[in-house]
């Protein structure tokens, strides 16, 4: 696995961003930037050097699902790996995210193993 990958972690709770950042560090990914909703995340993504997006769903401003749709509709970002990390666990929502093109979906609260497993799977599929 390429440990130089640049991650963008989007969550409105700064504690959760910090937790995910720490877990990524433990997995060897040191290059992590943060945003607190879709509106602040999108300019960072459009700047072009993000390799992996981890986003919450329920956020004031632009929620994660809209961010995902915006990413998929931008030709430059369309293939960006996106992992959703959210407390939204309703079947309909998971299906909606899948239809919008999410690569992985982790329900909060989650374990470090689950996060690693999903990351590895997505990266293996993306060939990174």
């Amino acid at each position: 696995m390429n440990k130089d990958l640049k991650f963008l972690v989007v969550d409105d709770f700064s504690t959760m961003r910090r937790i995910i950042k720490n877990l990524l560090h433990d997995l060897g990914y040191k290059n992590v930037v943060e945003a607190d909703d879709g509106n602040t995340a999108l300019p960072l993504l459009k700047a072009g050097d993000i390799d992996f997006l981890i986003t919450d769903w329920n956020m004031p401003g632009m929620p994660g699902l809209e961010l995902l749709k915006a990413v998929r509709s931008d030709p430059k970002l369309a293939k960006l790996p996106v992992l959703m990390l959210t407390a939204e666990a309703k079947r309909d929502q998971i299906i909606e995210a899948a239809q919008a093109g999410v690569n992985g979906y982790v329900i909060k609260p989650f374990t470090a193993e689950t996060l690693k497993e999903k990351l590895d799977k997505i990266l293996a599929t993306a060939g990174k």
Partner: peptide, 11 residues
């Protein structure tokens, strides 16, 4: 570390 996720969920 992971347990601090409660702040997000209860929040």
């Amino acid at each position: 570390l992971l347990t601090q996720g409660y702040q997000d969920l209860t929040g």
